[in-house]
Amino acid sequence: MTNPQSIRPFHVNVPEAELTELRNRILATRWPEKETVSDQSQGTQLETMQELARYWANEYDWRKVEAKINAVPHFLTEIDGLDIHFIHVRSKHENAMPILIAHGWPGSIIEQMKLIEPLTNPTEHGGNASDAFHVVIPSMPGYGYSGKPTTTGWDPARIARAYGELMTRLGYEKYVAQGGDWGAIVVDAMAVQEPKGLLGIHTNMAKVIPADVDAAIWSGNPLPAGLSDEEIKACEQVRENKFYYAFIMGTRPQTLTGLVDSPVGLAAFMLDHDWKSLALITRSFAGIQEGLSRDDVLDNITLFWFTNSAISAARIYWENKTSFFAVQGVKLPVAVSVFPDELFEAPKSWTEKAYPNLIHYNRLPKGGHFAAWEQPEYMTEEIRTGLRSLR
């Protein structure tokens, strides 16, 4: 009988028949007519999707990323009745700091893999041995190679507890955590829970909006009086993104059955996360290289396809009962990085109030919501600098 606390090695190997089936489904796509506008105001544009499908079916090579995935150590361990998949790469440097790095939607381990080598091996990537980290990157429940919950209750707080248990199980008595998107919400929850050993967190999607402002943003009511220009801009940025994908997943995730039946349908939905990242990805499929490559985008979508995780991943929106961006009451040390194309740019005024133990705040010159994936050099330096005082 297997010990439920055992840690088992894991390896990815997609059968060739599944690659063939994926290609056939892409080639058999039934297309809608072209949008009736000249911009992306109606969603992911037909030209982008047809170029994505052409490249995906004819030129994309899953085996390249599969080899990259398998080049680092992967494991499974059962926590709270569910298998949690994670990457675990230990640094060769003796005093490395353990860090858990948490992804979100529509993300996966693919997002953070660019961080592994510079964080674990800093002397080869512009840093010092004293900057080294042992890196743990879990797949969220319902995502990628983690198990899919069969009962309700896997909300961000429960995931946070599972991640704390994972770091304890790995033998780390002191560690830090980092996150963006749902990962930011989860590590914020970890910081509220203060599991044994957690020294502090780094976030690139800070939960700093005051409760009354947050309520006004989502209700469409007038904003409270007395906000600074920077604070008003942040509110406008949240409203600008609209988050309709979150509303459908938050209320009717099971209705999205088409996403597990059509790879191109899945891709179109995953691309339309926020207007700035959609614009960036659209440019990449138009041949403009900046931040994310075509392969970067398709590596992540293809992992979702092969793990059949579109709906299991969507359910966290249904499970979640807290605000995406409102203050949660974190008292542990927090480092905040603000990327200009994030869903909103967290004002320093709010950040200092939300995180009374703020140890780092920095605005970056470029980068968006998927910062680790798009701008790994900036993110690496932010993690090193932001968490240095906790060593």
Rank of each mutant, 00 (worst) to 15 (best):
T2E: 14
I7N: 14
F10W: 10
T20W: 07
W31K: 01
T36M: 14
Q40L: 03
S41L: 13
G43E: 03
L52E: 02
Y55M: 10
N58A: 04
I69C: 14
H85R: 02
R90I: 09
R90T: 05
H93M: 01
N95T: 13
A102F: 03
G104D: 13
K114E: 01
H125K: 08
D131L: 03
A132Y: 07
S139C: 14
G144F: 00
T150N: 13
G153H: 01
I159F: 04
L166G: 02
E173H: 00
Y175V: 10
A177Q: 05
G179A: 04
V187D: 06
M190G: 05
E194R: 15
G197R: 01
M205R: 07
V213C: 06
A215H: 08
A215Y: 05
I217D: 06
W218V: 11
Q237E: 09
R239S: 00
E240I: 07
E240W: 08
Y245D: 06
G250C: 09
G250I: 04
G250K: 03
Q254R: 13
L256Y: 03
V260M: 06
G265K: 00
L266M: 13
A267H: 12
M270H: 12
W275Q: 13
A286G: 14
I288S: 07
G291P: 07
R294W: 03
V297P: 08
V297H: 10
N300C: 01
S312T: 09
A313K: 05
Y317C: 03
E319K: 11
K321G: 11
S323D: 09
A326R: 04
V327G: 01
P333N: 12
V334F: 05
V336D: 03
N362A: 15
L364M: 15
Q375I: 10
P376Y: 12
E377G: 13
I383H: 14
R388D: 06
